[in-house]
Simulated assay, not measured.
Amino acid sequence: MRRFLLPTLLLISSMSGAAGALAQTARQAQLTPADLGWVARIQDTLNGITTLKGRFQQLAPDGRRSTGIVWLDRPGRMRFAYDKPSPLLLVAGNGRLVFTDSELKQTTEIPLDKTPLGLLLRPNLSLAGDVTVTAFSHANGIVQATLVRTASPGDGSLTLVLADAPLSLKAWSVIDAQGRETQIDLFDLTVGMPIEQKLFDTKVEP
Results as ranks from 00 to 15, higher is better:
83 D>Q: 03
23 A>E: 12
113 D>K: 06
105 K>H: 05
205 E>K: 12
12 I>H: 07
73 D>Y: 05
107 T>K: 12
9 L>R: 14
44 D>R: 15
31 L>T: 15
158 L>V: 07
49 I>F: 06
188 D>P: 02
6 L>F: 14
27 R>N: 13
161 V>L: 10
93 G>I: 12
122 R>A: 10
206 P>G: 01
174 V>S: 05
158 L>S: 09
169 L>F: 09
71 W>P: 01
105 K>S: 04
25 T>M: 09
131 V>R: 10
144 Q>S: 13
159 T>Q: 12
173 S>W: 03
43 Q>S: 13
57 Q>A: 05
87 P>S: 05
170 K>H: 09
197 Q>G: 11
125 L>C: 14
88 L>K: 02
150 T>W: 03
82 Y>N: 00
30 Q>P: 07
52 L>H: 00
57 Q>G: 07
70 V>W: 02
191 V>P: 14
177 A>M: 08
173 S>A: 08
86 S>K: 00
177 A>V: 01
118 G>A: 04
54 G>D: 05
188 D>A: 13
185 D>W: 01
90 L>G: 02
110 I>T: 08
40 A>C: 06
28 Q>W: 04
106 Q>L: 04
43 Q>R: 07
92 A>T: 06
200 F>H: 10
157 S>R: 12
196 E>Y: 02
20 G>D: 15
189 L>D: 05
167 L>T: 06
100 T>V: 12
45 T>P: 04
158 L>K: 11
74 R>C: 01
60 A>E: 02
